[in-house]
Design a protein around this nucleic acid. Sequence first.
DNA 1: AGCACCACCTGTGGGC
DNA 2: TGCCCACAGGTGGTGC
Length: 300
Amino acid sequence: MGRQLGGTKKTLAGEIDKLPELPEVETIRSELEKLIPGKVFSCPVIHFPGTIENPAPEDFIVALEGKKVEKVTRRGKYLFINLDQGILVVHLRMTGNLIYSSDGCFTGERFLRLSLPFKDGSALHYADMRRFGRLWYVSSEKELEEIVLKNVGPDIYNELDCEEFEKLLTKREKRGLKALLLDQAFAAGMGNIYTDECLFRCGFNPNRQVYTLSKDERKNLYRSIRAVLEDGIAYGGTSFRDYRNAAGALGDFQNKLAVYNRAGEKCTRCGAEIIKTVVAGRGTYYCPCCQPEPGQERKK
DNA sequence: AGCACCACCTGTGGGC
DNA sequence: TGCCCACAGGTGGTGC
């Protein structure tokens, strides 16, 4: 086969399923925002109790029933369905999938973990092959911070300007760039794929440490993060498909990837061979020429 | 403080 | 052909 598409595979009912990083979660958020505000939850059906992180599954059911959706928001990869009382939180982790169904039906039974029907007959279904994803119900903003977002920093796309970003960097001068960008406590939203793409765009080796970056390079890092996320949002999943009308245009950011999953292929900028290593415990792709090892920057 | 490593899961790809 | 195992990545926990 050709190169494995970045985190893309066919799953339920032949739909394309992308790994949910910030742009995918943002896409889901903006589509859900058009679909569910004003709807009232009826009784949830839990197919796999481990999916419910808080409160206990039986209390989750009681808490959600009768609550009305007001808006859909996000921080990093956490999706918030704000209710007239409390907040429903969703984290898709690796293989989670939220599926809206206007008639409430869902036929891909295999990985269905939770069904959230609305009183009007439509429903939101949560499917998750690997069961890593989690949902929470919290009764207040205070609980949200204490129970869910205790170790989650500001949203790297919506809640940080360049100045604030640089200020956060000064508190992490000793950290490696890739490990830092993946650290959701530093700033929330970057995943493995977008981190590699971002570091390629600014030409920084994943192992380079913050303190080696000049003022200009820090601004460049910020700009590259924004650019790669903007591109991801622009290309990633242009449609949150109604399960009964799975006809939306499909996002195509995989084909824009410059380094991720391209080990052995030629760098699009210089033609050198893309390398794969492990950094911060993750498969890491970079161009050894465009992103020279720390200390070798001048040998370009 | 910062990082390595593991666990949680399950489908897939490559090696033999 | 078919079995086996390493691997994939987000988060949280442990331990150095």
